[in-house]
Each structure stands twice: as structure tokens, then as C-alpha cells.
Design a binder for these strands. Structure first.
Length: 452
DNA sequence: TTTTGAGTTGTTCGA
DNA sequence: GTCGAACAACTCAAA
């Protein structure tokens, strides 16, 4: 081999880049990681444990557990490739310039995000990095496609979204090189607070579930996704933390338009919150903040704990507490029940979901709660979003599998009465009578909504 | 600029 | 048991 005229490279001149992980806890299909690995000789990966992330507006023990365990696995995956995951505690606008100084990094790569908290944080971090002479580089990676023009109705958004160009799906980087002398940092331990978690944290479990769903669940998704006992991908926690890439999932699942449409809803609600950050606390339809709510503590507690006397409502609420996850159809039913049968402000439901859901995602949760309480971007009138828990149970749990799994007190109630156990006196002595009469409360809800 | 078509997921009632 | 109408009228997006 002939030496180049410029002579041997000087070791000190090798470049270092930082990859700032946030809610993209994976090595596959990670544009920021791929770009950093291609553009620099050494890559320092970092996660900043910001107390406001864990103890902020919606602290959640289940999510804290899922996050920390996913980080532990991410560290292993990076080490297996020669890299390393640094974990720092504190404010990212301080920790990142500091890490850049320690490692001599010239750039910080990260995937852009949309929540009001994330956008404000990212602006502060970018300013602090520039101040320190470090280049912040935003990448895609959290969502599937960017629709520049703002929309508030799903179908036009969907048409525009489908027409957007797609980035390529990346594999995991084969080899990484970490700077030496990194202060690595401990990942705190957290015990799993869930009785029966919907899945194990981390990329490995997420990819296994994605593979299984694409292989076994996709073909019948359109027909079966509304069945409470099964039919959906259950990937939401992995999508929230980015253990699975939404773009890769879209690519792998493109045979099912019905499923891709659901992925588009995820991008849609992120898009809506980005353009309407005020939605985080107020109704999109502002006049709806004039609705009269009856925030009865006892009713709210019965709802939270799954003892409303409506089997499908109680089954779904118990599934949420035990597993950290609830079927989408269940979310609609319990959301309608809370806001239109119990007349409790949707924000209480939103907060409870955020505390309990592993996938607790500000944009998704807020968008769906505004939708089900008829105060959000959905153009349909409120009475089209008023669910009868008895009919919903018969339709979406026709063989009673779901309800019996989560409400064992009903095991002796025959299927014909399973949606209305009060019509079968004595069969379920340990199960409460319905706390409200749906037909009556429905009328009251219509009156309340008509008044604004 | 104006017009026109369309809008995730329902329920109840009475003929 | 099945069917159509009523539940109200509005705003968004695109032509």
C-alpha cells in the first residue's frame, strides 16, 4: 500500500459526534445514530434523565420502569457494537454542552419531537449548544412523515400524509466506536409496578412483537382489531419509547391499509399538538371549555378502580391497571362513559391514563380524550361519540372472553346476561350494581352538550 | 373568492 | 326483528 501524499492521519484530529437519545430507544432504523456513525469517527450516545421527565406533569411508575429497563437494554445493544450509552442526570441544556466539552464532540444528533415540553426543551438545548460552539442536528425518526401544511381534519391529512416522500429504513449500525474515558453513569433500578405487564421493555421485545404481528396479525387486522380480546398489535408502548421505529413498522405493515391508517393517526395527533400546543390544557373547540362537568370523586374512583357495574367498562379499567395497556376500543368505551355517563371532565381521564399507560403519550392521549369527549379536532357531532356500554360489549366481546378475563366475579353469569348482570340477580353477588343508568345519563349528557 | 363536498370508530325510537 | 330517520347544523379543505 502506498502512503497518501498528505501523510498519515493524526489521531487527535478524529471527529466525535454525540447522539442524544430521547424517545427513540433503539439501534435499528435510527437516522440520528446512523448519521452520527457515518459522519464521525467516534460516537458518544447519551440519555439525559431529567427529573421533569419522570416527575413532571404526569409522573408514572409504570412508564419509569419501562424507560429505565429499555435504557439498560439499549446500553447492552450499543456495547455489543462497540459503543456505549452515557446516562446523565440533570437538565439536557447543561449536560449536553458539558458532555460535548468532555469528549470534544462537534455535533449533537437527535430526532425531533413535538410535545410542548419537548419543543421548548429542544429550543433551549439548541441555543446552549450553539453558545458552546457545538452544532445541533435534528433528524426524523420519531414519526413517519412530515406534513408541512397544517390540518385539523384527519382524512385530508391522511391523503397528504400518504403522498409525502418516505425516508429509507436503516439497519442497525454494525460497529460503533466510543470515545475513551467516558463517565458512563448508573441507570437506576426500578421494580416492575404492574401485575401483568403487557410486554417486557426494550427493543428486543418490541421487535419480537412487531415480527409476530406482521406475520400473524396483519392479515386479519382490518376484521379483528375491534375485538376486545385481541386483534391489535399492542405495540403502543414500544412506539412511544421508540423501541420500535414507526417508519420501519409502516414499511413492514404496508400490506394492511387499515393498520397503516392507524399509524397515520399517531402522526396526525402529533401534528395537531405541534400546531396547537394549547390543546395540552384546553379544548381545541374553545367554546367546549364552557361545558358543565360534575367532578364527583366517588364516581371517578369507581371508574378508575373498575367497579362501575358496567362489565366492559370495569374490564377495560382493570386491564389498564394490571397491564399498563388498554385496547383502543376499550379506551373509547371508558372515555365515553367517564365524560358522558359520569359527566366528569375529560382532563381527569387524561391524567389517569397518563399515570397508568405505558404508552402514555401527551399528543396521542390528549388527542383521543378530546376526540371521545367531543371537544377536539373531530368534526362529528357529540351524539355520534356517545357509546352504550351494553351494546359495545355485545358487539366487541361477543363471546365474553375479555370481560370474563378481567372481571372474574361474573364467571357464573350466562353469556346472554353478561353485558347486563343486574338482570341476573344472585349470579354475581360480589359484583356491584351499575352506579348510573345509561339511558338517563345519556339524556343529561346531550342536554349538557346542547347547552354550549 | 366562492362554492361544494365531506367529515374514524353511534344510539335510539318508532313505524 | 328490521328499517330509516332523528339526533344539529358546522367547519374544513379543495376545486
Amino acid at each position: 500500500m502506498v502512503l497518501g501524499r498528505s501523510g498519515p492521519r493524526i489521531r487527535d484530529m478524529t471527529s466525535t459526534a454525540i447522539v442524544w437519545f430521547r424517545r427513540d430507544l433503539r439501534v435499528h432504523d435510527h437516522p440520528a445514530l446512523t448519521a452520527a456513525a457515518r459522519g464521525a469517527d467516534r460516537v458518544a450516545c447519551v440519555f439525559v434523565l431529567d427529573d421533569r421527565l419522570l416527575d413532571g406533569r404526569f409522573p408514572s411508575e409504570p412508564r419509569r420502569w419501562f424507560l429505565l429497563e429499555s435504557l439498560r437494554e439499549l446500553r447492552e445493544a450499543l456495547r455489543a457494537r462497540g459503543g456505549e450509552l452515557v446516562v446523565r442526570h440533570g437538565r439536557p441544556e447543561r449536560e449536553l454542552p458539558e458532555l460535548a466539552r468532555e469528549t470534544g464532540a462537534g455535533s449533537v444528533h437527535f430526532a425531533s419531537d413535538v410535545s410542548p415540553f419537548a419543543t421548548a426543551r429542544d429550543r433551549r438545548v439548541e441555543a446552549a449548544l450553539r453558545e458552546a460552539g457545538v452544532e445541533p442536528v435534528r433528524h426524523p425518526g420519531t414519526f413517519i412523515a412530515d406534513v408541512p401544511k397544517p390540518y385539523t381534519v384527519f382524512t385530508p391529512f391522511w391523503r397528504a400524509w400518504r403522498g409525502q416522500p418516505r425516508r429509507d429504513v436503516h439497519g442497525a449500525p454494525r460497529a460503533l466506536s466510543a470515545p475513551s474515558n467516558l463517565r458512563i453513569g448508573e441507570i437506576p433500578r426500578a421494580a416492575c409496578p404492574l401485575e401483568r405487564p403487557i410486554g417486557q421493555p426494550g427493543e428486543k421485545a418490541g421487535r419480537a412483537r412487531m415480527n409476530a404481528f406482521v406475520r400473524d396479525g396483519l392479515e386479519r387486522y382490518a376484521d379483528r382489531h375491534d375485538l376486545l380480546a385481541g386483534g391489535t398489535s399492542q405495540l403502543s408502548p414500544y412506539l412511544h419509547f421508540g423501541c420500535v421505529s414507526a417508519r420501519e413498522l409502516e414499511h413492514r405493515a404496508s400490506a394492511s391499509e387499515a393498520f397503516v391508517r392507524q399509524l397515520a393517526w399517531r402522526d396526525f395527533y402529533a401534528h395537531v399538538l405541534l400546531h396547537h400546543p394549547g390543546n395540552a390544557r384546553q379544548a381545541f373547540q374553545q367554546h367546549m371549555d364552557g361545558l358543565e362537568w360534575e367532578d364527583d370523586e366517588d364516581a371517578l374512583a369507581a371508574w378508575r378502580e373498575g367497579r362501575t357495574g358496567y362489565p366492559v367498562v370495569d374490564a377495560a379499567m382493570r386491564q389498564l391497571c394490571a397491564t399498563g395497556w388498554m385496547h383502543n376500543r376499550g379506551r373509547l368505551i371508558v372515555g365515553s362513559f367517564l365524560t358522558k355517563d359520569l359527566h366528569v371532565d375529560w382532563r381527569h381521564g387524561e391524567a389517569h391514563f397518563m399515570r397508568r399507560l405505558l404508552c402514555g403519550d401527551e399528543a396521542q392521549n390528549n388527542g383521543n380524550w378530546q376526540w371521545v369527549s367531543s371537544v377536539g379536532v373531530d368534526p362529528a357531532p357529540y351524539f355520534r361519540r356517545l357509546y352504550n356500554p351494553v351494546l359495545q360489549q355485545r358487539r366487541h366481546d361477543p363471546d365474553g372472553e375479555y370481560v370474563r378475563r378481567w372481571v372474574p366475579e361474573l364467571s357464573d353469569v350466562p353469556l346472554e346476561q353478561l353485558a347486563e348482570p343486574w338482570k341476573c340477580p344472585g349470579a354475581a353477588p360480589d359484583y356491584p350494581p351499575p352506579i348510573v343508568d345509561h339511558a338517563q345519563e345519556r339524556q343529561r349528557a346531550i342536554a349538557r352538550y346542547r347547552a354550549v
